[in-house]
Amino acid sequence: MSVAVPPWATEVFGEQALPARVRLGQALRNMQANAQAAQEQTASRTNHTYGSSRWQGQFERVQEELRDLPGARPVKPYNFPFELMLINKGLLYPFLHARTKADVRTARIPNESQLIKELFIFAPEPTHVQGSFDFGDEGVSSETVSPRGGLAAVPPDTRLILVPFACNASELLEAHWGIAALGEERRLEWKTVPEPLTLPESVKTSRPTITSVPQQPTSPAAEHTSFDQGTAPRLTLSSRANVDRQRDVPPLTEAEPVEDQTSEDDATH
């Protein structure tokens, strides 16, 4: 089945538009499966494990799926724990916009971080440009925001491609991608029609999964592992000197412990 690619995607991603679209859907499916598996393993009564794994996976699974595309490279924003994927002129930013099915055209960016300010440097200007961003920082204009870290090396003609998705601990509901400006109260002003991504049913992973502990091979050297079954150590005995016995010098049974001159703090210096 052929999948239509919108003109904006071809302009931004070039020949990688279709592979990027397909692999994005696969990455989000993998993200959901990994997060659900983590939640199941913990058997927790809360969804904290799912949420943490999902947040991590929305960046790491995307990188796994897209990193070998021609023209793709990871970009590490300043003070951000994960890398974003840049493919030709498109910088991808996946984020959760709802936990139930919701109209993506009314989606809002979920937080007001410095990262969001720097990412939207590569987005179109909103229809109504205020004197300052409404990020709670009075007097900070959009012109004063500069990209840092890996974003500082991103070409100025890069376009921010948003990938909003909706999911919860039970299911992955939907996902879209497109270009939008950041309007008032963090609402998105879509400059392209947010296109639905195809979410495959099957999970794909290249990472090995341990389902059971494999039986360890035995060898004659490893047969006796108990502390009382090994070969007895050879002890070297020596008699005390006559002068020590005449002076009642106590026998030395073991060396005095040597104080460790290092500590865990040394590893940080």
Rank of each mutant, 00 (worst) to 15 (best):
P19Q: 07
N47I: 12
G51I: 06
V22H: 04
S2I: 14
S53T: 11
L18W: 08
N47D: 15
S53A: 15
E15I: 01
A33F: 13
A43Y: 08
P19G: 06
A35N: 04
S52M: 08
Q26K: 10
P19D: 07
A37R: 14
T49K: 14
V5C: 00
A17V: 07
L24T: 01
R45G: 14
A38V: 09
P6I: 07
V12R: 00
G25V: 07
Q36R: 11
A17Y: 01
Q41F: 12
A37L: 13
R54S: 04
E40T: 13
T49G: 08
A9K: 00
V3Y: 10
S2A: 14
A4W: 13
T46S: 15
R21H: 15
F59I: 03
M31T: 05
R21L: 12
Q41D: 13
V12Q: 00
G14W: 03
A35K: 02
P7G: 10
A43D: 15
R23A: 07
A27V: 05
N34A: 14
Y50M: 03
A20Q: 08
T49N: 09
A27G: 04
P6W: 07
Q36H: 10
V62M: 05
G14D: 02
A38G: 05
P19F: 08
E60Y: 01
E60L: 07
A27Y: 01
A9N: 00
A38W: 04
W8I: 06
S44H: 07
Q63F: 06
E11T: 12
G14I: 02
T46G: 09
Q32S: 10
R61H: 07
L18D: 04
A20I: 06
E15A: 12
S52T: 15
L18H: 06
A9W: 01
T49P: 05
R45F: 13
E60K: 08
Q26V: 08
T42A: 15
G51N: 15
G51R: 12
A9L: 02
G57Y: 00
A35S: 12
N30T: 11
W55G: 00
A35L: 05
A20G: 10
N34Q: 15
E15P: 05
P6E: 10
H48C: 08
S52G: 10
R29F: 02
A4H: 12
T42V: 15
R21F: 12
V12I: 12
G57E: 01
A20K: 03
A20F: 06
T46A: 09
L18P: 02
L24K: 01
W8F: 10
L18T: 04
A27I: 02
F13K: 00
N47F: 14
Q16K: 04
V5H: 00
S52R: 13
Q36N: 05
R54W: 02
